[in-house]
Design a protein around this nucleic acid. Structure first.
Lengths: 325, 325
DNA sequence: TTGTATGCGTTATCAG
DNA sequence: CTGATAACGCATACAA
C-alpha cells in the first residue's frame, strides 16, 4: 500500500507538503496541492491512522463503558452521546461490560494505552478509587453521582427523584407501597433503596421484605414480578419500579390476569422510556438523553483544553403524570 | 510517560529483551525477566498500543456496522459476535449507522486506514459493488444473503423462511393475510415482500394494498398498526409481522381493545425474540445469535490466515409454535 | 540467550 | 511557501 513518501516522490514534492495537503494546512501553492491530490487519487492512497495516532498522541475516539447495550435505559444515554460525538467528529467505542470488573478495567487500560482519548462510564461496578487512578491518563466522565470525586460526573439525584416518586404515590393515597429494583451493581440502586426505606420510616409505613423485589431488568422480569405478587397473601397497593420496561411487562401481564391498574395496583416507573407513553405509564423523567449529551460535552472540552479539573453536572428530574397512578 | 527504552535502561537490558518480556517470548532468562517486570511495575509503565498497531499492522479490533444499536433484532446478533470476540481476545467496535451511507462508508474507510482488522456488516444500505471495493483492505462479512459476491456472508433464506411462515398460516385456515414490514432499507425486506406477493399468487389470494403495512420497527409501531386495523372496513384475519417487538406492541394494544388473538386476528412473528416467549407469540426463529457467532468465526479465520477467499454460510430457520396462531 | 540496527508511516520542528 | 530531518514507541531480522 502506498505511503506518504511514495506520494511525495511521484508528485515531485516533499513529504511535508503531502502532509500539509492531507491536513488542509495553509501555505501550500495551488499547483503543488493539486499535484499531490492527483497522485493520491491515482495511487488510491489512504492514511495509516495508526501512524497518525502515534505521532499526535490522540485517536479521536472515546470509549463508553456500558453494562448492557440492549437495555433501553442505556440506549437513551448512548443516543445523546452519539449525537454529540457526530458533531465533534469523534468516534464512540461502545464497550459492553456486563458489570464485570475485568472488562471494565480493560477499557480503562485502553485509555492508559493511548488507544482512546477519554472514557465515559455510564454505569460500573468499580470503585471511585480505582477510577481515580486512571484520571492520570485522560479525562473520565461518570454518569452517576459519586460525590466529591477526582473525575467528572453527570447525574440526577436518585435519592430526591425516588423520594419524590414515593411522595407522589403517598399523596395519591397509597399506603402499602412495594419496590422493584434492577441489578444491585450501580451505586444508584443502593441509593434508591435507602430512599425507599427512609420514606417508609418518614411515613410510618412498615418495612416488608416481600415487597422488596430485586433483579428486575427486562419486561420478562416484570411478568415474573406480577406472578410473584399474585402469590402473596397481602399485596401492595402500589409499586415503584426502577425501569419502565419492567413496569411494561408487569402491566401487560396484569391485564392478562384481570388486575386493574391503577385500581388494584398503582404503578410508577422510573426512566421515561418511549414504551411508557404507549402504556400510559406514570413515570419519573431522569433525562437520560441529556445525560449523554452533557457527558460528551464535558469530556470533549477536557480533551481539547487538556483540562484536568473535574466537573460535576447535576440534571433535574420531573414526574410525568399519566394513567397508572 | 515511560517508554520501552527507559525500561530497558533502568533494568539494565536492551529494548529487545523488554519487548520479549512484554510479548511473552521464550529465550529470556528468569533473572532479566523479573528485572524487567520489576522496572515496569516501578515506573507504572504501559504500552502505547498505537505504536504496536503501526508496527504490527494489526489492531485486534473489528468494527460492526449496525443501523440501530437498541433494536433487539440486532442485539441478538451482537450478543453472538461479542461472545466469540471475547474468546478470541478481539475488540468489537460497534458503529451505529442509522442506515446512512456516509456513516457506513466511514467504517469501511477505517478498514482502509488500518484502524481495524475487519468489518462485520449486520445490515446496510450500500451496494455489494461498493463493499467489494473494500475487500482489498481486509476481510468483510455481511449478515445478509447477497448471492455470489466477493465478500463473505452469513444468512438465512428470507424467502423460504417467510414463505414457510405464510404457509403455516395458510395451513391453519387463514385466507386473509396481511403483512407488516420494517424499514425498507435492507435487501432482506424486499425479498420478504416478494415472498409475500408470490404466496398470494400461489394461493389465489388477492393483493390488498391496505394490508401491506410498512415502517414497523418498534412496539409503538405495533400499537399504531392495531389502530390502523381498527379503522379498516375489512380486516385481515391473520398478520405476518417482520419483527417480534412490533408484534408485541400490537398484541398488547389488541388486548386493550378486546380483540381476541388468535380468534379475531392471528399473528406470526419473525425473529424469535425473548419478548415473544412472554406473550406466547408464534414466530419464526432465524438464528440471530448464531449469525453473530458464525460471522465472527469467519472473519477471525480470514484475519489469522490472511485468507481472502469469500465464505458463504447458510443458517436454517424454524417455526416456533406458540399461541397466537 | 542477548543486543544492535532498522523500519513502521506519519507529523512536528526549524531552517531556509 | 517549501523541505530535510527528527521524533513518536515499538517489534523484529540479524548478528553475536
Amino acid at each position: 500500500m502506498a505511503n506518504i513518501k511514495e506520494i511525495a516522490r511521484m508528485a515531485g514534492v516533499s513529504v511535508t507538503t503531502v502532509s500539509r495537503v492531507l491536513n488542509n494546512h495553509p501555505y501550500v501553492s495551488e499547483v503543488k496541492r493539486t499535484a499531490v491530490l492527483n497522485t493520491i487519487e491515482k495511487l488510491n492512497y489512504s492514511r495509516n491512522m495508526n501512524a497518525v495516532h502515534l505521532i499526535t498522541g490522540r485517536t479521536q475516539a472515546i470509549a463508553v463503558i456500558i453494562p448492557y447495550i440492549n437495555l433501553f435505559y442505556f440506549s437513551l444515554i448512548i443516543e445523546g452521546l452519539a449525537q454529540e460525538a457526530l458533531l465533534a467528529q469523534y468516534r464512540l467505542i461502545l464497550c459492553q461490560t456486563d458489570y464485570q470488573p475485568e472488562e471494565e478495567i480493560k477499557v480503562l487500560e485502553m485509555l492508559r494505552n493511548k488507544e482512546i482519548d477519554g472514557v465515559v462510564i455510564v454505569s460500573t461496578s468499580i470503585s471511585s478509587e480505582v477510577i481515580e487512578e486512571y484520571t492520570a491518563y485522560g479525562p473520565i466522565v461518570v454518569c452517576q453521582d459519586r460525590g466529591n470525586c477526582q473525575f467528572s460526573s453527570v447525574y440526577i439525584e436518585h435519592y430526591s427523584a425516588f423520594r419524590s416518586g414515593l411522595q407522589y404515590l403517598n399523596d395519591k393515597g397509597y399506603r402499602r407501597i412495594g419496590y422493584c429494583e434492577g441489578r444491585q451493581h450501580g451505586s444508584s440502586s443502593s441509593i434508591r433503596q435507602i430512599a425507599f426505606r427512609d420514606f417508609l420510616n418518614a411515613t410510618g409505613q412498615p418495612y416488608r421484605e416481600e415487597w422488596m423485589i430485586y433483579d428486575c431488568v427486562t419486561e420478562e422480569d416484570g411478568v415474573r414480578v406480577l406472578h410473584h405478587l399474585l402469590e402473596m397473601k397481602q399485596r401492595p397497593d402500589a409499586l415503584i419500579i426502577s425501569g419502565d420496561h419492567v413496569a411494561a411487562g408487569l402491566i401487560i401481564e396484569a391485564w392478562k390476569h384481570g388486575i386493574q391498574i391503577p385500581e388494584d395496583l398503582a404503578i410508577i416507573g422510573f426512566d421515561n422510556q418511549p414504551i411508557g407513553r404507549t402504556l400510559g405509564l406514570t413515570t419519573i423523567d431522569n433525562q437520560l438523553s441529556e445525560m449523554g449529551t452533557t457527558a460528551f460535552r464535558i469530556i470533549y472540552d477536557q480533551i481539547q483544553n487538556n483540562n484536568r479539573h473535574p466537573v460535576h453536572h447535576k440534571l433535574e428530574y420531573r414526574i410525568i403524570e399519566r394513567s397508572t397512578v
